[in-house]
């Protein structure tokens, strides 16, 4: 708790010190209205999904709650999908986006993706163990399920020659894979990993080498410098305390190398974090 306040206070101080612009910025609005609006995924178990009361829960909603608690405001979650999340941020519908978004150079032009990144995943496929895919080139000509809007769909079909069969959501794509409609399902390895830990997918594996391992970033709107600095502070704080690793364990998945590495690196950042 102490470190959290410290980190947040550092971030807050930094943001105010550099001088908030005269016009009302997002952080000021949040503090005044008492509500922080965060965009998260709602169909990406365990990072963001629906519980039976209709609430969005998961790792990212927990992180968002941590942000709201630190600021002492109410949290409002908005479900976003890959194809609308950046527009929502740009339009001001959400203040912060923590929605499994891969940090790419093109996206940095559209929104302000913060340093450091908070998570990481790459692209892999999930296929029945009986299929013998060894390299990505083995996918040539194979029907491969995907989710519409994912950036690696094009690469998988253009470079590796797979026939992408794109569905609107993950549950449809998984169902199509199970029915045998595709030879494999190409998606984020973090999502596939958590599926493979479930009994019902015990006949499947991730046979290929993960490619395009790229970090996920928290994003705010361009020009919202105070909010950006505050959120950067929050991400540093999460890595320092190992909070993301703990959340991964809480939701029953193996911590990815990235979060472990970041925790190791940041552990000494604030002396109090050492236990």
């Amino acid at each position: 708790m102490k470190t959290r306040i410290l980190a947040a206070a550092t971030a807050l101080a930094a943001s105010f010190a550099v001088g908030a612009p005269a016009t009302a910025d997002t952080l000021q609005n949040v503090m005044q209205s008492g509500t922080l609006t965060v965009g998260v995924k709602a169909d990406y178990k365990p990072y963001g999904y629906l519980d039976s009361d209709g609430n969005i829960v998961g790792i990212e909603p927990d992180l968002a709650q941590d942000v709201a608690d630190t600021l002492g405001v109410e949290l409002e979650l908005v479900a976003v999908v890959a194809s609308n999340r950046m527009q929502f941020l740009d339009q001001g519908k959400i203040d912060v986006m923590i929605a499994t978004m891969t940090d790419t150079a093109e996206r940095r032009e559209v929104v302000n993706i913060l340093n450091p990144d908070y998570y990481s995943s790459g692209t892999n496929i999930m296929a029945r163990k009986s299929t013998d895919f060894e390299t990505w080139d083995d996918l040539e000509g194979a029907p491969v399920c995907g989710v519409q809007g994912a950036f690696y769909n094009r690469k998988t079909s253009q470079e590796f020659g797979a026939e992408i069969v794109g569905f609107t959501g993950t549950s449809e794509a998984l169902n199509a894979l199970r029915q045998g409609r595709c030879a494999a399902f190409v998606y984020d390895d973090s999502f596939l990993n958590s599926r493979l830990q479930e009994d019902q997918w015990s006949d499947y594996n991730m046979p290929l080498e993960t490619i395009d391992d790229a970090p996920w970033g928290v994003a705010v709107k361009h020009g919202e410098d105070a909010m950006a600095r505050f959120m950067s502070g929050m991400v540093v704080h999460w890595h320092t305390t190992g909070q993301i690793v703990e959340l991964e364990k809480k939701y029953g998945i193996d911590p990815v190398p990235f979060t472990r590495k970041m925790h190791e690196r940041y552990r000494g950042y604030i002396p109090e974090a050492k236990k």
Binding site: A42, D43, K45, V81, N84, L174, N175, Q200
Partner: peptide, 19 residues
């Protein structure tokens, strides 16, 4: 992506994860 009955059904199905 509007949160109407089909969207919710799809999210429920993703949460339940039982094809």
């Amino acid at each position: 992506g509007v949160g109407e009955v089909m969207t919710l059904t799809q999210r429920v199905l993703a949460a339940e994860n039982r094809p």
